[in-house]
Design a protein around this nucleic acid. Structure first.
Length: 161
DNA sequence: GCCAACGTTGGC
DNA sequence: GCCAACGTTGGC
Protein backbone atom coordinates (compact mmCIF):
# COMPACT_ATOMS: atom_id res chain seq x y z
CA UNK A 1 0.00 0.00 0.00
CA UNK A 2 1.49 3.26 -1.14
CA UNK A 3 0.35 6.84 -0.75
CA UNK A 4 0.48 9.62 -3.34
CA UNK A 5 -0.30 13.20 -4.09
CA UNK A 6 -1.88 13.97 -7.46
CA UNK A 7 -2.20 17.50 -8.77
CA UNK A 8 -5.01 18.74 -10.90
CA UNK A 9 -6.18 22.16 -11.93
CA UNK A 10 -9.71 22.67 -10.60
CA UNK A 11 -10.55 24.82 -13.65
CA UNK A 12 -9.91 21.73 -15.76
CA UNK A 13 -10.71 18.79 -13.51
CA UNK A 14 -11.15 19.35 -9.80
CA UNK A 15 -12.47 17.27 -6.93
CA UNK A 16 -16.05 18.17 -7.92
CA UNK A 17 -15.52 16.66 -11.37
CA UNK A 18 -13.80 13.69 -9.78
CA UNK A 19 -16.81 13.16 -7.53
CA UNK A 20 -19.20 13.44 -10.45
CA UNK A 21 -17.13 11.10 -12.61
CA UNK A 22 -16.70 8.45 -9.93
CA UNK A 23 -13.79 6.88 -11.77
CA UNK A 24 -11.51 8.69 -14.17
CA UNK A 25 -8.48 7.72 -16.28
CA UNK A 26 -5.66 9.99 -15.15
CA UNK A 27 -4.73 10.95 -18.70
CA UNK A 28 -2.51 13.67 -20.06
CA UNK A 29 0.49 12.96 -17.86
CA UNK A 30 3.50 13.66 -20.06
CA UNK A 31 6.31 13.44 -17.60
CA UNK A 32 8.36 10.27 -17.36
CA UNK A 33 8.81 10.31 -13.62
CA UNK A 34 5.09 10.69 -13.04
CA UNK A 35 4.38 8.00 -15.62
CA UNK A 36 6.80 5.64 -13.94
CA UNK A 37 5.04 6.05 -10.62
CA UNK A 38 1.75 5.03 -12.23
CA UNK A 39 3.26 2.26 -14.29
CA UNK A 40 5.61 0.72 -11.76
CA UNK A 41 4.59 1.61 -8.26
CA UNK A 42 0.85 2.07 -7.98
CA UNK A 43 -1.46 -0.69 -6.91
CA UNK A 44 -5.23 -0.84 -6.83
CA UNK A 45 -6.38 0.64 -3.54
CA UNK A 46 -3.46 3.03 -3.09
CA UNK A 47 -4.71 6.32 -1.69
CA UNK A 48 -3.89 9.76 -3.04
CA UNK A 49 -4.26 13.30 -1.81
CA UNK A 50 -6.17 15.19 -4.49
CA UNK A 51 -4.38 18.52 -4.79
CA UNK A 52 -5.69 21.60 -6.55
CA UNK A 53 -2.88 23.41 -8.38
CA UNK A 54 -2.83 26.66 -10.31
CA UNK A 55 -5.64 28.08 -8.26
CA UNK A 56 -6.10 30.39 -5.29
CA UNK A 57 -5.28 29.06 -2.90
CA UNK A 58 -3.68 25.79 -3.97
CA UNK A 59 -4.20 22.89 -1.61
CA UNK A 60 -5.59 19.44 -0.84
CA UNK A 61 -9.31 19.15 -1.59
CA UNK A 62 -9.97 15.46 -1.28
CA UNK A 63 -8.90 11.85 -1.49
CA UNK A 64 -8.89 9.47 -4.44
CA UNK A 65 -7.75 5.91 -4.82
CA UNK A 66 -6.12 3.88 -7.55
CA UNK A 67 -8.86 1.92 -9.29
CA UNK A 68 -7.11 0.08 -12.11
CA UNK A 69 -3.93 -1.57 -13.17
CA UNK A 70 -1.69 0.52 -15.44
CA UNK A 71 -2.71 0.68 -19.10
CA UNK A 72 -1.93 2.92 -22.09
CA UNK A 73 -3.23 6.50 -22.12
CA UNK A 74 -5.58 6.56 -25.13
CA UNK A 75 -5.15 10.31 -25.64
CA UNK A 76 -1.62 9.76 -26.97
CA UNK A 77 -3.10 8.16 -30.11
CA UNK A 78 -5.90 10.68 -30.56
CA UNK A 79 -4.88 13.24 -33.17
CA UNK A 80 -7.57 15.60 -31.94
CA UNK A 81 -6.32 15.50 -28.35
CA UNK A 82 -3.91 18.07 -27.04
CA UNK A 83 -2.07 15.14 -25.51
CA UNK A 84 -1.53 13.47 -28.89
CA UNK A 85 2.02 12.16 -29.22
CA UNK A 86 3.04 11.33 -32.78
CA UNK A 87 6.11 9.49 -31.56
CA UNK A 88 4.14 6.96 -29.56
CA UNK A 89 3.17 3.74 -31.30
CA UNK A 90 0.21 1.55 -30.45
CA UNK A 91 2.42 -1.52 -30.15
CA UNK A 92 4.81 0.38 -27.90
CA UNK A 93 2.87 3.07 -26.06
CA UNK A 94 4.94 5.70 -24.37
CA UNK A 95 2.34 6.97 -21.89
CA UNK A 96 0.76 4.76 -19.26
CA UNK A 97 -1.89 5.68 -16.73
CA UNK A 98 -4.14 4.30 -14.03
CA UNK A 99 -7.76 5.08 -13.19
CA UNK A 100 -8.51 7.04 -10.05
CA UNK A 101 -11.72 6.67 -8.10
CA UNK A 102 -13.30 9.36 -5.95
CA UNK A 103 -13.10 8.59 -2.23
CA UNK A 104 -14.13 11.76 -0.43
CA UNK A 105 -13.71 15.46 -0.16
CA UNK A 106 -11.81 16.76 2.82
CA UNK A 107 -14.24 18.44 5.23
CA UNK A 108 -11.68 21.25 5.50
CA UNK A 109 -9.65 22.43 2.54
CA UNK A 110 -5.95 22.12 3.41
CA UNK A 111 -4.23 25.00 1.68
CA UNK A 112 -0.61 25.01 0.63
CA UNK A 113 -0.10 27.63 3.29
CA UNK A 114 -1.44 25.21 5.90
CA UNK A 115 0.87 22.50 4.58
CA UNK A 116 3.84 24.84 4.63
CA UNK A 117 3.14 25.69 8.24
CA UNK A 118 4.06 22.06 9.02
CA UNK A 119 7.00 21.92 6.61
CA UNK A 120 9.37 21.71 9.52
CA UNK A 121 6.95 19.83 11.72
CA UNK A 122 4.84 16.80 11.01
CA UNK A 123 5.15 17.24 7.22
CA UNK A 124 8.90 17.60 7.15
CA UNK A 125 10.33 16.28 3.88
CA UNK A 126 7.07 16.14 1.98
CA UNK A 127 7.81 16.44 -1.75
CA UNK A 128 5.14 18.98 -2.59
CA UNK A 129 6.68 21.40 -0.11
CA UNK A 130 10.09 21.31 -1.70
CA UNK A 131 11.04 24.38 -3.65
CA UNK A 132 10.71 24.10 -7.37
CA UNK A 133 8.61 20.98 -7.21
CA UNK A 134 6.57 20.71 -10.38
CA UNK A 135 5.94 17.00 -10.51
CA UNK A 136 2.23 16.27 -10.91
CA UNK A 137 2.41 12.94 -9.07
CA UNK A 138 4.57 12.48 -6.00
CA UNK A 139 4.87 9.69 -3.45
CA UNK A 140 3.72 10.60 0.05
CA UNK A 141 4.85 8.95 3.25
CA UNK A 142 2.12 7.24 5.21
CA UNK A 143 2.65 9.48 8.23
CA UNK A 144 2.36 12.56 6.01
CA UNK A 145 -0.77 11.22 4.36
CA UNK A 146 -2.35 10.61 7.74
CA UNK A 147 -1.33 14.03 9.01
CA UNK A 148 -2.84 15.80 5.99
CA UNK A 149 -6.06 13.79 6.40
CA UNK A 150 -6.28 14.94 10.00
CA UNK A 151 -5.66 18.54 8.95
CA UNK A 152 -8.46 18.13 6.42
CA UNK A 153 -10.87 16.95 9.08
CA UNK A 154 -10.91 13.28 8.11
CA UNK A 155 -11.19 11.58 11.46
CA UNK A 156 -10.43 8.01 10.48
CA UNK A 157 -8.04 8.00 7.52
CA UNK A 158 -7.20 4.38 8.30
CA UNK A 159 -10.69 3.42 7.22
CA UNK A 160 -10.57 5.13 3.80
CA UNK A 161 -9.22 2.17 1.92
C1' DG B 1 1.12 38.23 -16.08
C1' DC B 2 5.68 37.31 -14.21
C1' DC B 3 9.27 34.38 -13.57
C1' DA B 4 12.03 30.64 -11.14
C1' DA B 5 12.68 25.97 -11.60
C1' DC B 6 13.47 22.37 -14.31
C1' DG B 7 12.35 18.85 -18.00
C1' DT B 8 12.92 18.09 -23.00
C1' DT B 9 14.80 18.68 -27.50
C1' DG B 10 18.12 18.79 -30.91
C1' DG B 11 22.55 20.44 -32.92
C1' DC B 12 27.08 19.36 -32.61
C1' DG C 1 26.94 12.88 -24.32
C1' DC C 2 27.09 17.93 -23.66
C1' DC C 3 24.51 21.96 -23.28
C1' DA C 4 21.90 26.01 -25.14
C1' DA C 5 17.39 26.99 -26.38
C1' DC C 6 12.93 26.34 -25.54
C1' DG C 7 8.56 24.95 -23.28
C1' DT C 8 5.86 24.05 -19.18
C1' DT C 9 4.51 24.19 -14.41
C1' DG C 10 2.63 26.52 -10.85
C1' DG C 11 3.14 29.80 -6.95
C1' DC C 12 2.84 34.48 -6.39
Amino acid sequence: MNYWLIKSEPDVFGIAEMKAAGTEPWDGIRNYQARNFMRDEMDIGDLALFYHSNTKPPGVAGIAKVASKPYPDHTQFDKKSKYYDEKSKEDNPRWILVDFEFVCETPNYVSLEDLKAEAEGKLEGMAVLRKGNRLSITPVEKKHFMAVCKMGGIKKPNELA
